[in-house]
Design a protein around this nucleic acid. Structure first.
Lengths: 237, 237, 237, 237
DNA sequence: GATGAATGAGATTTCATTCAT
DNA sequence: TATGAATGAAATCTCATTCAT
């Protein structure tokens, strides 16, 4: 997780790869799964509004009407995709929170999970961020409860860290949680828009960066004082 | 810049309120301006895709066709709204960067401007964030250059702060800029979704919070005493 | 080929009726065919520009959207109608040209085919003449190649007749072909506008008239000489 | 007029150039005239349906509304253009018919007038042929009476020529008139579509060709008989 | 389960025409 | 006369959804 150090959670803590796979591990890709996977690609490529149901069917290689056999509407396809993934994330956050690890490690595990999710399936994360998470008038509203839950769970971690004296008490947990989550999502946005360099090493580094920034701050440790070096800036986590 | 202290930049540094007005200061609200203002309300209320051009015309109290007299398409209405505001922001960031002030003050001025923009016209900021800034397949692509410029300007501030020894050098400026901007935008998203408490005091406080979080970090400062290593960074929670 | 005599070509030479049917012979009128046939009636009645797609759908007794299921646009409906018919005509002209018959018979066969086409489906021919053949800024341009081909094929017949000494060499084939085709099309225009008497006998007579006029000329044969009857009017080229 | 012979009417008989000018000779091009002239260009370039009233105004260099100051509608602009020209043609035909000249000369004068009209203002003739003369469902119907009159006047010339023994009596005058007019119009269509070579010499030649074809026929004169020259070739070509 | 033809409401956009100045 | 902003009816085309097979 740190530039050179041990991973901040991720595989070990969060359960790793198998939960990144979305849910299609078992079935030999049923038609339903084919449709969902195709929808991810099509939504990512064209956007939810700009694509037609027939595009999904074509991409999936199935007949037009079959989409409606498995899903009540185009909306429901996106709903399904979002919920599948979001539930996994909520579960991950809950597990992380229950672990007897430092807040840095918890934040690290969350950042790691989200970044790895993007790494594993950038299209899906693109769709979730672009079409749901910020879609205040459509899917964002529909899934407000789930979205809110994620923020609250992160907020709970902050509250706990404050109670334990690790985090400064004057920054409201809800706001802190939003800053943390917003920073991560913005990194994904950067990759999605092609504004940030992508690739394995950048993804790994980003996990460390976002935790380091939010927890430790961008500023240099105070130089002066009697030996009050800020250890963090040495990267020596 | 204490929690209850002076505003983080904003008015004083950035030139303040008059540039929040968007561009309608002069004309006694021309029909064109009426349409733009109405579009903001309608886009914010229903979303760009869910509203019809007739909704804009109705909201503006003008005839249907007049929208097309002034704008080539529905898209162009949103383009105009976005660019009007974004240009002002880019200008603000450039001015801020040129000021002989600390990086905290610069970040404070930027956060202040964005939060005040939301305060002054929450609908407009909602539209920009929801319909443009993350719309990777539509308006986000169209305005990629402008969006990227903002990130780069913030990145330049980080780079400079690192060169001067205020910011830690190991965090890449581009990533740091994204984290900072993402944190702010997420706060706005929180208000837009009704997930964070709004109101004058919360807005002011948020300006401070985001700067404090990104620059200073969420972690406790080392607690005095000789050799008081910053516990947090040691992961020894 | 006397005024009241046998038809100038037509059935015998050209293969006759079956190719006048346009292409709907087989299917028990598919929906697609229903739409095309309805379009012919509507275009003929109201004109291409004055009719709406819904008029076509109504006339065909199908739902609005089905027109767009089968055709990409209103234009494509007309394109299809024109090409269906025009290809048949080009084929006819090519066949006629290949026959070992006199130029009069060839011209007769062509005139016969066009007149019979009108007889068989006046609406379709009206549409072709009114909306395509002279529409220099729209469909005429689109189908310029096909239209030109017809004129050239007729020109080839003239060229050959000149080479064989049947036609006077001083009249350029291209111009002669245009005069011939223009004369026929104008007769159809006369019927379309209700300016010429229509009906079986008039149609038959018109076939003869146009060939007689173009090949033999309107002028009286020189009265002089002993028995120097105008051989041409007997069809005895 | 004939390739080598005397002009078939044209200037001498028909009164020549001044009536080709359309009617604007006098006024120092009033705004009204500017609009009409601009409309000709725009209609010819884009077609009546494809052009907007604003295109006419722009082309004329006048304000949008001025078109409606002078004309009640877009239709009326075309009506005016057509009638201006068509009346001149009807007048010409009437004068020609009243002249004590041969039917060949009369036909020559008419062909000459129409071809010269095209030569003088191809755009106007294009508009008349493309938008009116064959527009059976719009302007063609509106101006049916005027159009019919032209055909009838030509028919009268044929009738007279038959009565005098110059034309064969078995070809109905109405049909003959249509063939003659159709042949001419088709030549213009050929030029409009770029399918026939244009230029002064071709225009002159075309006048002769069409008369020669319709009056004399395309066929070779019977070679045989003592002195059985065909009068038609009286142009001794 | 699977198919794709058929439906039709609704959206954007166009543009002739009006009218206040 | 001259201008061009303002009007709004209508047209094309889209596409989610249904349904018969």
């Amino acid at each position: 997780m740190s530039p050179a150090g041990a991973p901040v959670g991720g595989e070990k803590v969060a359960g790793g790869d198998q939960r990144l796979a979305g849910g299609d591990e078992k079935a030999a890709t049923s038609k339903r799964r084919q449709i969902l996977d195709a929808a991810v690609r099509v939504f990512a490529r064209q956007g939810f509004h700009a694509c037609r149901v027939s595009d999904i069917a074509d991409e999936a290689g199935v007949a037009y009407g079959l989409v409606y056999h498995y899903f009540a509407s185009k909306d429901e396809v996106l709903d399904t995709l979002f919920l599948e993934r979001w539930q996994v994330m909520l579960e991950l956050i809950r597990e992380v929170d229950a672990q007897p690890i430092s807040v840095r490690e918890k934040f690290g595990a969350i950042a790691s999970f989200i970044v790895d999710s993007y790494r594993h399936d950038p299209d899906l994360m693109k769709v979730i961020i672009v079409e749901v998470t910020r879609a205040a008038n459509s899917f964002g509203q529909t899934h407000l409860a789930e979205i809110r839950t994620a923020y609250e769970l992160i907020g709970d971690i902050v509250t706990e860290a404050q109670a334990q004296g690790y985090f400064r008490p004057e920054i409201e947990p809800r706001f802190a949680a939003m800053a943390f989550y917003g920073a991560i999502e913005q990194l994904l946005t950067g990759w999605i828009f092609g504004l940030l360099p992508a690739g394995p090493e950048h993804f790994e580094r980003a996990k460390w960066l976002v935790v380091e920034t939010i927890c430790g701050g961008l500023e240099q440790a105070p130089r002066g004082g009697a030996g009050s070096e800020r250890a963090r800036s040495s990267g020596a986590q």
